Simulated scan of single mutants.
Amino acid sequence: MARNEQLIRQHKILQLLEMARFGRTLDEIRDDLVQDLGLSSLHERTVRRDLEALMAAGFDIQDEVLQRGKVYKLGRTERGVHKITATATELIALSIGRDLLFPLAGTQYWKGIESFWNKIQEEMPDGVWDHYQRFRRSVHVMGGPTKSYDKQEGMLRTINRAIAEHRILEIDYESVGRPITTRMIEPYGLAVYQSSLYVVAAAAEVTDPEQRMRHWKLDRFHKATALDEWFKPDPEVDVSKHLKNSIGIFSGDSPTPVTIRLGKRAAAWVREDPWHPEQQLEKQSDDCFLLTVPTSHPREVLPKVLALGADAEVVGPDSIRSAVAEVIEKLAKAYCKPAGASDQAGD
Rank of each mutant, 00 (worst) to 15 (best):
residue 253 D to R: 08
residue 187 P to F: 01
residue 267 A to S: 10
residue 256 T to A: 01
residue 291 L to F: 03
residue 214 R to I: 01
residue 327 V to C: 01
residue 256 T to L: 03
residue 221 F to K: 08
residue 133 Q to F: 09
residue 286 D to I: 00
residue 219 D to I: 10
residue 281 L to H: 08
residue 173 Y to H: 02
residue 109 Y to V: 13
residue 96 I to H: 01
residue 150 D to C: 10
residue 179 P to M: 01
residue 160 N to Y: 12
residue 139 V to Y: 07
residue 16 L to T: 07
residue 90 E to N: 10
residue 65 V to D: 02
residue 20 A to P: 10
residue 169 L to P: 00
residue 306 L to G: 07
residue 342 S to D: 05
residue 109 Y to D: 06
residue 108 Q to W: 05
residue 130 D to S: 15
residue 329 E to T: 13
residue 243 L to H: 10
residue 273 D to R: 15
residue 11 H to S: 13
residue 281 L to S: 07
residue 299 R to Y: 07
residue 75 G to P: 08
residue 248 G to A: 11
residue 227 L to V: 02
residue 247 I to E: 05
residue 134 R to P: 04
residue 50 D to E: 04
residue 280 Q to D: 05
residue 252 G to M: 03
residue 60 D to L: 01
residue 22 F to P: 07
residue 289 F to R: 00
residue 160 N to M: 15
residue 3 R to T: 08
residue 184 M to A: 03
residue 53 A to E: 12
residue 256 T to C: 08
residue 290 L to W: 13
residue 331 L to C: 06
residue 160 N to F: 10
residue 209 P to S: 09
residue 212 R to I: 01
residue 89 T to S: 11
residue 243 L to A: 01
residue 233 P to M: 06
residue 144 G to C: 08
residue 35 Q to N: 09
residue 206 V to E: 06
residue 115 S to W: 10
residue 159 I to V: 15
residue 165 E to H: 11
residue 248 G to I: 07
residue 158 T to C: 13
residue 45 R to A: 05
residue 175 S to M: 03
residue 195 S to H: 11
residue 105 A to Q: 15
residue 80 G to I: 02
residue 23 G to I: 04
residue 57 A to D: 08
residue 65 V to T: 04
residue 271 R to A: 06
residue 288 C to T: 12
residue 41 S to N: 14
residue 15 Q to P: 04
residue 329 E to M: 09
residue 130 D to F: 07
residue 190 L to E: 03
residue 80 G to S: 00
residue 9 R to G: 05
residue 309 G to M: 04
residue 84 I to Q: 06
residue 230 W to C: 10
residue 185 I to D: 00
residue 232 K to D: 13
residue 329 E to A: 11
residue 254 S to Q: 12
residue 68 R to K: 15
residue 40 S to G: 13
residue 5 E to M: 08
residue 306 L to N: 12
residue 40 S to H: 12
residue 141 V to Y: 08
residue 178 R to Q: 14
residue 287 D to M: 04
